[in-house]
């Protein structure tokens, strides 16, 4: 007997819903990733009012190589979730557009790429120059 979690993951990947299904899956995964960071982030920032030393330590943790990579992932997840969420909201509020789902999916991916690529490149450049020069 397979573990239910394993079944969930396997069937989510196996289901042949093509683009719409993959977008649904990515939306779900990106949303869960963002919500974990959101909790950590609100807690860390609120500590500036209650425990400045802990607040400072959390800001310093964001400057480590691990978070420098995590920040790039967060940028991709956030931008994808924002663009794809806009696609979902527009399509669901406008049933006339339901004939154009595949066009909308393609545009969502193009816009995500166009926004995420420069963002990630600039952030990666800032991080690399920080670690190289030490500033």
């Amino acid at each position: 007997m397979l573990n239910p979690l394993l079944i969930t993951v396997r069937e989510s990947l196996r289901y042949r819903g093509r683009e719409s299904h993959w977008m649904w899956l990515l939306h779900r995964v990106s949303g869960l990733g963002i919500v974990v960071f959101l909790g950590l982030h609100i807690f860390g920032m609120s500590m500036s009012a209650f425990n400045p030393a802990l607040h400072e330590r959390m800001l310093e943790a964001y400057k480590t190589p691990l978070f420098a990579v995590g920040e790039l992932v967060l940028a991709a997840l956030l931008i994808f979730h924002a663009v794809n969420g806009t696609r979902i909201a527009i399509l669901e509020l406008r049933p006339q557009l339901w004939e154009k789902q595949q066009v909308a999916t393609r545009w969502a991916l193009i816009i995500t790429f166009a926004l995420a690529m420069p963002t990630i490149l600039v952030m990666a450049w800032k991080s690399v120059s920080h670690f190289v020069s030490g500033q």
């Binding site: 920032m45 607040h55 400072e56 800001l59 940028a75 963002t119 952030m123 991080s127």
Partner: peptide, 18 residues
């Protein structure tokens, strides 16, 4: 996100900024 990560940059964020 863009204000903090692109304009300011994670490595420039300090408690003084908060």
């Amino acid at each position: 996100f863009w204000l903090q990560h692109l304009l300011i940059g994670t490595h420039a964020i300090t408690t003084a900024q908060t």
